[in-house]
Amino acid sequence: MSHGFRQDMPPPGGYEAIKYKRNLPIRGPGGAVIFGAVGLICAFGFYRVGQGNLEKRELKRELAWSRIHLVPLILAEQDRDTYRRHEAAVAREKEIMKDVPNWEVGKSVYNTKRYTPNTIVVL
């Protein structure tokens, strides 16, 4: 039975199995790890925000006290100036109203002993 040709046959050992199965190798960290890492980053961020809020509060305290310490100094200077202007205004009034009988110079328009600052500034 020799025909002079050879029938094409599978390779010895047979064909290798057809790769039809899903092949998705797991790469990188797992979901739980990523979730945890994001959680950690968020936790650090919130911790930092909290520390920043505490520090902000202390910065406000520092600012407030630096101003409180300067209040007497500035108030004293302002008082002297107000007093000086008030005295000058009284002197001016005295000069202007010297011909008016029974005129009380520098009398307040309010019937009180409490200090009432001037609401009118004479230019």
Partner: peptide, 19 residues
């Protein structure tokens, strides 16, 4: 002194010491 009286004339002496 200022809390006693807000009048500028009332605390001039103390104010000078401050300055």
């Amino acid at each position: 002194c200022k809390s006693e009286n807000r009048d500028p004339a009332h605390c001039l002496k103390e104010g000078r010491k401050v300055t």
